[in-house]
Design a protein around this nucleic acid. Structure first.
Length: 940
DNA sequence: AACCGCTCT
DNA sequence: TTGGGAGAGCGGTTA
């Protein structure tokens, strides 16, 4: 049986383009090659894995198709094709030609019509197994016994091959022809098929299961009720049209030329030139087996181990350890990987002798790279499956760890000396995770730490920092995906324990190897900026250790209290909903902004000029609703409902579910490499957004309690840290003075701006001044300010003008900040943490404005983060040094929270205050606020 | 998956 | 007259 692959170039190009959206591949000449690269990889993967006998690549034409002529609206409002894609298409065509693959184009038809037609023709000959390669779902309609849908691997998902059975199961239909009925109802945003409003996938599947087709559904519309019946009636024609649009043409006047589709030899010259132009170095090497210029292999740190001869297959570590008596027991696998064309040597270390020998050699190194394999994403819950080590590029070792905890501890003992060796630097990607896992097995990792993720965070704070992306960007290498081992996420995700040892070894060892290589590449970049080196070594790396400890400590949660609160909220919620329904005169989903908007503005006509969002929905945000509060009783009910619903679902019900089964406590996870400014973030759960503003929300803080009767919660927060930094950076005399004299800075500001003595400042004046103070930090405009303070635009402008007149240095500082960014391209904190703001020179005023505000905010917010990070490191050092029973348990941007043993309260409070205030002295002094209580609320 | 809305500093 | 202060994460709805 011959094997024919038909590729939908357009769909694959689009997919590749968006897959690389966050970190596009750019050549030295500025050409974005993401789409071409993605497509090429997909194409080569098929050639390698599937070994087709025939292959063709179909494109759309730029000319209008029969769909355009038949349906005017078709693709009318389809968004403009991204420029990078337009540019990519000719390259993809050239690539196909160089690879001797026919390019299938037919004027007036789209790629799917061509593929549909050829698939049917090929299938009719009886000699072909046809695979249509595309991520598009509408191809489902073409599937038959020997014509299959081939969905390429994507974002960790495996390749998926769908025959008629799979397609029908996927959509819950009885016949693949019904795919078009489904699309007719639910529409398809990508292909600009409108469908029927209000019908999504779920509903469409249900309706087609019952009625079989769009036509039959329309004929039986009387059996439907409510909104659904209305929609189907009103949009019946659109539904039929949509179905027709979704139908793929299978009679395109195109010949099925078997000879032309046969695979043939690439044109090496054309291909070589093209790959050079695209700067696809690895691909070039792999396809043509030659390099334009010998690429330099990264060199590892100088090793103390005996250096062995490197042969082509890099058997160095075998020789290196051959001096030991266990030589010969090393099970060496040397694999020449076709995908990456990389030579490596990964070894399985699974006997006591091998482990001891490995540990011996690890202890001789200046630096080692390691990684842990575990059973869970959450480090707190994870069981160790194995560890990998590497100290020379291309060489790595994998040590499996048994399921049984006792046995696991025995193995860890073999490596305790290594982890606790102060003289050996430890390199890892996201090292906090590994520290936590090992700590749970009683192993403390000592010595200098080097986290490649954090190094990259300092180099490129706004990019992504996961290892796979770093490897692709800096090593031009695609590592084995974890999904290849345990499958995609979801209910059927496999357990790493069940995976073949050889595969785990390759995967795990590779991670250590790659991480080591990344350090070799990233560190020189970091070293170019001495301030970043210092920030990395004295702040970020020590902090990673601190965070691991804080996370592992966790917080005690009063579950009984939350349970009661939940029941109370439930009652209140029902009441509020009932009352809102009565006031609306009908039941509706209050949580649906869409339905709510319709009730408020179309049924109750609360605001004739209600604003809509860009997606055509009424805006129903809190500020809008507050403006309507006096118009109708229902508005208050809706605001109440929203508050209750938020509290219940996001906090009261969610938090207890996240308690650790192991410790019974709540362990957040701090992310040290996500924010653009240097702040930390907190997830699973986010403990940095626990309510405090409203009385009812505040209650939730009562659930965060001290560990027992001998402990209390201590909260310590920096007072006005960002404003103090602003005062210090600008050198503004009166603001500095206000702080250094310990005045209420907002009151002092009001006094100046409104020209009244301090004691005559009213509450309202202070409120306005406070808003301006905050607004300034963010680079506010008059309009934005007027919204916040609820004053007229004129008054807001006056306020700002007065402000700048009274605090001229602040104005100067803001201008200087922007000027500096215009000149250098980045904003910088006091410790040299950078944020790149290329849009500061953009012609687009929205983009430029955003960059300008960031030029002001980033150094301030970032410096506050720097200071807090230093304080945390110092405070934790103090707690360790003094061997206190008290623990740091949370950090919320400018606040630290402790679970304090009562006997240590005064001592700790005093030192925490000192360490925070003097963490990084500025010309404006810092102040803290401290509070103590049985729970987090009382501590404020 | 995108959006809307809402929580925090 | 519409763009119109910063940084985050999460739950619910909708398509």
């Amino acid at each position: 049986m011959k094997k024919l692959f038909l590729l939908d170039a357009m769909a694959l190009i689009y997919r590749a383009h968006f897959a690389f959206a966050k970190t596009p591949r750019i050549t030295s000449t500025g050409l974005n090659t993401s789409a071409v690269f993605g497509f090429t990889n997909t194409l080569l993967e098929v050639l390698r894995k599937e070994n087709p006998s025939h292959l063709g690549v179909a494109f759309d034409t730029a000319k209008p198709t029969f769909r355009h002529t038949r349906f005017e609206a078709y693709k009318a409002q389809r968004q403009q094709q991204p420029e990078d894609i337009t540019i990519a298409i000719p390259y993809v065509k050239r690539l196909c030609e160089a690879l001797c693959i026919p390019v299938l184009i037919m004027e007036g038809y789209e790629a799917d019509d061509i593929i549909g037609t050829l698939a049917k023709k090929a299938s009719a000959t009886g000699g072909y197994e046809v695979y249509m390669m595309t991520p598009d779902k509408d191809y489902g309609q073409l599937v038959e016994e020997h014509v299959k849908l081939y969905k390429p691997a994507f974002m960790g998902k495996d390749v998926e091959i769908m025959g008629p059975k799979e397609v029908c199961e996927r959509w819950g239909i009885s016949n693949v022809d019904q795919v078009v009925d489904l699309l007719g109802l639910m529409g398809d945003a990508v292909d600009n098929i409108p469908g029927i409003p209000g019908i999504g996938e779920k509903t469409a599947v249900k309706l087609i299961a019952e009625y079989g087709s769009v036509e039959n559904l329309i004929a039986n519309v009387d059996q439907l009720k409510g909104k659904m019946a209305e929609n189907v009636r009103a949009f019946a024609e659109q539904g039929l049209l949509s179905k027709e649009l979704a139908l793929i043409e299978q009679n395109v006047p195109i010949e099925f030329d078997e000879k032309a589709l046969e695979l043939c030899e690439p044109n090496r010259e054309t291909l070589s030139a093209l790959l050079d132009e695209l700067e696809f170095r690895t691909l070039r090497k792999r396809l043509l087996g030659e390099e334009p210029a010998p690429a330099e292999t990264p060199k590892t740190a100088k090793s103390k181990a005996p250096t062995a001869q490197m042969d082509l297959f890099g058997a160095a570590p075998v020789a290196a350890i051959a001096t030991s008596e266990v030589a010969g027991q090393w099970e060496t696998t040397t694999v020449r990987r076709t995908v990456h064309d990389t030579v490596h040597d990964y070894q399985l270390i699974d006997t006591p002798e091998l482990r001891k020998s490995l540990a011996h050699y690890l202890n001789l190194q200046d630096a080692i790279c390691f990684d842990t394999e575990t059973t869970a994403l959450s480090a707190i819950e994870a069981d160790l499956i194995g560890m990998s080590f590497s100290y020379r590029v291309g060489e790595a070792f994998y040590v499996p760890v048994p399921d049984n905890r006792e046995a696991a501890l025995v193995i860890l003992e073999d490596f305790r000396s290594v982890f606790e060796n102060e003289a050996v630097e430890k390199i890892a990607q996201n090292i906090k995770y590994d520290l936590t896992v090992l700590a749970n097995y009683g192993v403390e990792v000592k010595g200098k730490l080097y986290d490649t993720m954090l190094a990259h965070y300092l180099i490129e704070p706004e990019k992504r920092h996961n290892m796979d992306i770093l490897a692709e960007t800096y090593l031009n290498y695609t590592p084995v995906a974890i999904e290849e081992l345990i499958g995609k996420k979801g209910k059927n995700q496999g357990n790493m324990r069940d995976v073949d040892m050889e595969k785990i070894k390759e995967y795990a060892a590779e991670d250590a190897d790659i991480t080591l290589q990344l350090k070799e590449v990233l560190n020189p970049v970091l070293q170019q900026n001495p301030k970043l080196v210092s920030l990395f070594e004295t702040v970020e790396m020590p902090l990673a250790r601190v965070l691991a400890e804080v996370e592992a400590e966790g917080v005690r949660l009063d579950v009984g209290f939350l349970k009661e609160l939940s029941q109370q909220l439930d009652v209140d919620l029902r009441d509020t909903q009932q009352r809102a329904w009565e006031l609306a005169g009908q039941e509706f989903n209050i949580a649906s902004p869409k339905q709510l908007g319709e009730i408020l503005f179309e049924k109750l006509h609360l605001d004739p000029k209600a604003k809509k969002t860009k997606t055509g929905q009424y805006m129903t945000g809190e500020d809008v609703l507050l403006g309507l509060e006096s118009k109708h009783e229902i508005v208050r009910k809706i605001l109440d409902f929203r508050e209750l619903q938020k509290l219940k679902s996001t906090y009261v019900d969610a938090l207890p579910a996240l308690l650790s089964p192991r410790t019974g406590r709540l362990h957040t996870s701090f992310n040290q490499a996500v924010t653009a400014t240097g702040r930390l973030s907190s997830t699973n759960p986010n403990l940095q957004n626990i309510p405090i503003r409203t009385p009812r929300g505040r209650e939730i803080r009562k659930a965060f309690i001290a560990r027992d009767e001998d402990h209390v919660i201590l909260s310590a927060d920096y007072s006005q840290i960002e404003l103090r930094i602003m005062a210090a950076f600008s050198g503004d005399a009166s603001m500095t003075e206000a702080f250094n004299q310990g005045l209420d800075v907002h009151r002092a500001t009001a006094s100046k701006v409104f020209h009244v003595p301090l004691e005559e400042v009213t509450a309202d004046m202070r409120r306005k001044a406070k808003t301006v103070n905050f607004g300034i930090i963010y680079g506010v405009s008059a309009f934005g300010l007027s919204q916040q303070v609820e004053v007229s635009r004129t008054e807001a402008k006056e306020l700002i003008d007065n402000y700048f007149r009274e605090f001229p240095a602040v104005k100067e500082y803001m201008d200087e900040s922007m000027a500096k960014v215009r000149e250098t391209g980045y904003a910088e904190t006091i410790l040299g943490r950078r944020r790149y703001l290329p849009n500061i020179n953009s012609g687009n005023q929205t983009d430029r404005g955003y960059a300008e505000r960031n030029a002001i905010n980033a150094p301030i917010q970032g410096t506050a983060a720097d200071i807090m990070k230093i304080a945390m490191v110092k405070v934790q050092d103090f707690i360790r040094r003094e061997k206190l029973k008290s623990r740091m348990i949370l950090t919320v941007h400018d606040e630290l929270v402790f679970d304090v043993h009562k006997s240590e309260l005064d001592y700790l409070r005093e030192h925490v205050n000192e360490l925070m205030v003097h963490a990084l002295p500025l010309s404006v002094k810092m102040e803290t606020g401290m509070g103590v209580g049985q729970n987090w609320l009382e501590a404020h």
